[in-house]
Design a protein around this nucleic acid. Sequence first.
DNA 1: CTACATGCTACAGTTGCTGTAGGAGCAAGG
DNA 2: CCTTGCTCCTACAGCAACTGTAGCATGTAG
Lengths: 144, 144
Amino acid sequence: MSQDFMIGELAARTGCKVQTIRYYEEIGVMPPAVRAANNRRMYDDTHLERLTFIRHSRELGFSLDDIRSLLALADQPDRPCDEVDEIACNHLNEVERKIASLKVMENELRRMISHCAGGTVSDCRIIKVLADHNLCEEHSKLTA
Amino acid sequence: MSQDFMIGELAARTGCKVQTIRYYEEIGVMPPAVRAANNRRMYDDTHLERLTFIRHSRELGFSLDDIRSLLALADQPDRPCDEVDEIACNHLNEVERKIASLKVMENELRRMISHCAGGTVSDCRIIKVLADHNLCEEHSKLTA
DNA sequence: CTACATGCTACAGTTGCTGTAGGAGCAAGG
DNA sequence: CCTTGCTCCTACAGCAACTGTAGCATGTAG
């Protein structure tokens, strides 16, 4: 096992673009790849696992900064996982905040659109509401 | 009416930073300000209205590109408002898409966090799920 | 007269990539 | 043997929507 392969195969196996992998190496979330004689990056299963971890974390919305911390913690199995929990909880809070903010936008957009009678721009409720904050029902709740 | 004032007052009256106003002028969503003898930008109520429109649109999540289009349409009151509706509807769809994607993240994060028993990193469910996509309940639904 | 606030330009930095230019190596087909 | 085409390499520019900084000029208050 731990057969070596090149960046193209790592990309194909993880659904990650080649440039993105090189970018992860550049910013230090992926370790520098060992180079073959022709200067090409060679990878094995440990790289595959690490990149899978990164991609999954990204899909869950973690920042690369958080991921750097999570990877560092994952490499120290005997430490308590408080810090992991904290990163995850903070991120969950952030996700909830974003959902709440988007829902306010959603409500207001729906309201604007449903009030538009479809005439000319001068009658358009959407333009009116955008021009005058006071016509907006939720204008105190917006904290995007 | 239409008293002139400087950029600091425009900023204070709209809750927009001074640099942001200059940036809006630079990219052309705000018209170039008339300059006083000392080269300072002077504004009047039309600028105040325009910036209010921009800020409110931004609060509702519209891109500056969309806002450019909306402002151009707002300046042509006799045209039908189909295009306005279309921009607003497209944006609403995008907002809904984002909410759906964030909710998937939220569910999975909650699930991970609630499964963590609080021991060491080697037992941590959060790290395990991040490392192995198959432990993720919703991994097919993530399309952030 | 001296601070201090405000204004100006110009540019770098943020996040997480994506795309491009310009070049080299390698295998297969003609 | 040569060309075509694929993959790889580095280095850099660009996206969105700002925000912050440096270094300077101007205006006002005490």
